[in-house]
């Protein structure tokens, strides 16, 4: 669906996007992650044919974004950051205008309008002026606009920014439902959102792609060493610590005592949960926690985007 090759964008001497390269297949939901100024929006603007790239090429549904720009645009539904909308139009006027502009045949406009209104819950406000809508509704109008011509590819630049938690959940559900018919490329700051909706994550930093993988793979990549939390109550804590230390593969051990409970943070080469359990059973310790620490996307993100700064 998307094929990006050596795409570069320079603003004067600043390189916003530096020779990035990736592909997005049909039906994927790809989350674009990165700190502010990493080049997410610039990349999306280039893909949606708004900004011409400095060098490199990209293809959308087989059409070059530069040479076949108009054809490529027909296959894209783009929702820009902050959703700029004309203030003077009513919601239905705007969506019908956009549908006509994007080449939806006259007889189908009514049907498409009804469809997107229902999908985005806009039916109640369809006669309201866009200027009078709340942020959440404006966001949904932007989303409805992006979908109105049934594009194969949706490019959504921060679709949930500035929404309240309920609205974020609604948008997230909506995006997940769209998966059946659309390929989606979305950018966001909210990492939990990516974990919940995306089939693949692309982390971009300083104009370069750092990682492109599924959220699960990313997580396992950073958790394979096995960081384990183990909280026990042993009659002799010092002896217990020594016994745990004696287990094979242990790299380091931190303990923290509160009254009769001791909490260990264990770094090991392998997953030692079973051995720890057996040890506790043998020694008749009371256990109240034994978990493998799973890296969240947050940690992965911090690790990847900060490694150069430290």
């Amino acid at each position: 669906m998307i094929k990006v090759q050596n795409l570069t964008k320079r603003y004067g001497s600043v390189t916003a996007v530096n020779e990035i390269q990736f592909e997005v297949g049909k039906g994927e939901i790809v989350g674009f992650l990165g700190p502010n100024g990493a080049g997410k929006s610039t990349t999306m603007r280039m893909l949606s044919c708004y900004l011409p790239p400095t060098s490199g090429t990209a293809e959308i549904a087989g059409y070059d974004i530069f040479r076949d720009s108009l054809r490529a645009r027909e296959h894209i539904g783009y929702m820009p950051e902050n959703v700029p909308l004309p203030q003077d139009m009513r919601v239905d006027e705007y969506l019908r205008f956009r549908a006509a502009l994007k080449g939806v045949p006259g007889r189908r406009i009514k049907e498409r309008f009804a469809d997107v209104c229902e999908l985005c819950n806009l039916t109640d406000v369809s006669r309201k002026l866009i200027g009078a809508l709340s942020k959440g509704y404006r966001q949904r109008v932007g989303l409805a606009d992006a979908m109105i011509h049934e594009p194969e590819l949706l490019i959504l630049d921060e679709p949930t920014i500035g929404l309240d938690p309920n609205q974020i959940r609604q948008v997230r559900d909506l995006i997940r439902n769209l998966r059946r018919h659309h390929t989606i490329l979305l950018s966001t700051h909210i990492l939990s959102e990516v974990e919940m909706t995306c089939t693949r994550v692309i982390i971009i930093n300083k104009g370069r792609i750092e990682v492109s993988d599924t959220p699960e793979n990313l997580r396992s990549r950073l958790t394979k060493e096995g960081e384990i939390l183990f909280e026990v109550s042993a009659p002799d804590p010092a002896a217990a610590t020594a016994k745990i230390k004696a287990l094979p593969h242990i790299k380091s051990l931190n303990s923290h005592r509160t009254q009769d409970w001791t909490r260990y943070l264990i770094q090991a080469d392998e997953d030692l949960r079973e051995e720890l359990h057996n040890l506790a059973v043998r020694e008749k310790w009371r256990v109240r926690e034994l978990t493998q620490r799973v890296a969240t996307l947050e940690q992965i993100f911090a690790e990847i985007t900060h490694k150069e700064d430290i």
Partner: peptide, 14 residues
């Protein structure tokens, strides 16, 4: 100013 040029120019119009 409003930024509406962006949705306009990403629609398939020359």
């Amino acid at each position: 100013k409003l930024g509406t040029i962006e949705p306009l120019m990403t629609a398939p119009v020359g």
